[in-house]
């Protein structure tokens, strides 16, 4: 990539275009696509989403996040980065929180999946959702479903005695304080930065006096 004059973008591109240049000129851009190849090979997969059995035929490249958003139209789980860096896509699989953008849908055959839509609805909010409204634990709302899913799953992890990086005693299960919440929630970025309020909302639900 150090040529200053006409270099190709990828190694593969360089090899192919070298051959192409020797034979023909490029096809015009409005050339018709080949219809025979229009359908991608698909793989059947079925899982339970928010208590409902769903069966899909999916391109194996479809992430769990895109299966939910684009195929089941459950758009509550958000695509913030598609690279497991932001947490906006957090869902629960078999009760554990994961970044749904970092896992392929076909890897979840038979799994039990919970998304934000499975937690509560307007008028019938889950306590964590209600606490986020009460404490203004959001602004633009785009990271919010991921924050809420992570928060609910995180409290369960604490209950289950899973220690964190800031736990001072690895065997003292179930202890929660503000630092624990902050550490355990650090995989969920909020650029509007409602962090202070999110911690207050989680503390409210956890019934923790010493959080915040």
């Amino acid at each position: 990539m150090t040529d200053t004059n006409g270099f190709s973008l990828t190694r593969r591109g360089a090899l192919v275009s070298g051959v192409a240049a020797a034979s023909t000129t490029a096809l015009p851009l409005d050339a018709q696509p080949l219809p025979a190849e229009a359908r991608a090979a698909t793989v059947p997969v079925s899982f339970t989403v928010n208590g409902k059995k769903r069966a899909l035929d999916l391109d194996p490249r479809v992430t769990l996040l895109d299966a939910l958003r684009e195929h089941l139209h459950l758009t509550g789980s958000k695509k913030g980065c598609d690279h497991g860096q932001c947490g906006a896509c957090t869902v629960m699989v078999e009760g554990k929180r994961i970044n749904s953008c970092l896992t392929l849908a076909v890897m979840h055959d038979g799994d039990e999946i919970t998304t934000i839509e499975g937690l509560g609805k307007p008028g019938d909010l889950h306590p964590m959702q209600a606490a986020f409204v009460k404490h203004d634990g959001y602004q633009c709302g785009y990271c919010t479903p991921g924050q809420i899913m992570a928060a609910v799953a995180m409290l369960q992890e604490v209950k289950d005695g899973v220690p964190s990086y800031v736990s001072t005693d690895l065997t003292a299960a179930g202890r929660i304080d503000a630092q624990e919440v902050r550490e355990r929630m650090s995989g969920n970025i909020c650029r509007c930065a409602a962090y202070s309020n999110i911690v207050a909302a989680i503390a409210d639900v956890a019934g923790a006096e010493d959080v915040a």
Partner: peptide, 21 residues
């Protein structure tokens, strides 16, 4: 005042651009 759009945002039902299926 609690945000009036809050219940939509916390339930993932506020539709953002890419979600207007």
């Amino acid at each position: 005042t609690d945000r009036i759009d809050g219940p939509l945002k916390v339930t993932g039902t506020a539709p953002y651009a890419f979600e207007r299926n």
